[in-house]
């Protein structure tokens, strides 16, 4: 059961990450200042959410959707 919830969590975070980059929310980040590590804010925003999504996809692979046998054992 816990694994199922974890699976949903990974899907949800991935979708939220995509929405942060692709929904109209992006227009709030559509600015140059403040710069972050020298990058304009818009680029930094995209890199931040890209990093979050990539990390989540790696964790998701390692913890849940890559090891479905674990789910079966728990059930």
């Amino acid at each position: 059961m816990r694994k199922n919830k974890l699976g949903i969590f990974f899907h949800a975070v991935t979708i939220i990450g995509i929405l942060m980059m692709e929904s109209p929310i992006i227009l709030l980040a559509n600015r140059i200042e403040p710069k972050i590590f020298g990058f304009p804010f818009l680029i930094a925003w995209i890199l931040f959410w890209w990093f979050i999504c990539t990390l989540i996809l790696l964790i998701a692979y390692q913890m849940d959707w890559g090891r479905i046998n674990n789910r079966k054992k728990e059930v």
């Binding site: 991935t14 990450g17 995509i18 980059m21 692709e22 304009p40 818009l42 680029i43 995209i46 890199l47 959410w49 890209w50 999504c53 990539t54 996809l57 959707w65």
Partner: peptide, 19 residues
């Protein structure tokens, strides 16, 4: 300008849908 930055999201979307 920066419109091609959307590529970061389309890679994620593509990979996710591939799964």
């Amino acid at each position: 300008g920066p419109v091609y930055l959307t590529a970061f999201a389309w890679n994620i979307l593509f990979g996710y849908l591939y799964y």
